[in-house]
């Protein structure tokens, strides 16, 4: 629901980083614990950037799984498809999160490079 304001923040960061260069792709890293819906984020990006120099640019969103270390049994655990954080081995809720809360802009692809950016 807050994807629109997040896109405004992303746009500010991108404009500051890119200056007057033309951005084609904005690469984001997004943890699964973030309550952000990628499809909605892309939709809002189009709305926010319409009629701006970023119009037509793409959000490339890399999803990061939730992983944690269990303080009860010391197991390293990856938690899929749930926001409820319990150790897969012993069921303890006493976990130290390692990944899953990321939300950052990593890189910007620029136009006119002539290179295959793969």
């Amino acid at each position: 629901m807050h994807e629109l304001s997040l896109c405004n923040s992303i746009q500010q960061v991108v404009n500051r980083a890119a200056g007057d260069r033309t951005v084609t792709v904005v690469h984001l890293r997004l943890g699964r614990l973030r309550q952000v819906v990628p499809d909605t984020l892309r939709y809002c990006w189009d709305l926010v950037t319409a009629d701006s120099p970023l119009a037509g640019s793409e959000l490339a969103i890399e999803s990061v799984a939730v992983s944690a270390r269990c303080n009860a049994c010391a197991a390293g655990t990856t938690i899929a498809d749930t926001l409820v954080l319990l150790c897969c081995e012993c069921g303890s809720p006493d976990l130290e999160l390692l990944t899953g809360e990321e939300f950052l802009i990593t890189t910007l692809d620029l136009a006119d490079s002539g290179a295959d950016l793969g």
Binding site: L6, S9, I10, V13, V14, R16, A17, A18, G19, R21, L28, R29, E62, V64, T99, E102, F103, L104, I105, T106, T107, L108, D109, L110, S113, A115, L117
Partner: peptide
């Protein structure tokens, strides 16, 4: 997913132009 040194993730990285075709930003939203 895990190769940035911690110190790189704070502050304004808009100056990190590492090539003509790509800018590394590494800024938390």
């Amino acid at each position: 997913h895990s190769h940035e040194p911690e110190a790189d993730l704070h502050g304004d990285h808009s100056g990190y132009a590492t090539g003509a075709d790509r800018i590394v930003v590494l800024e938390r939203i």
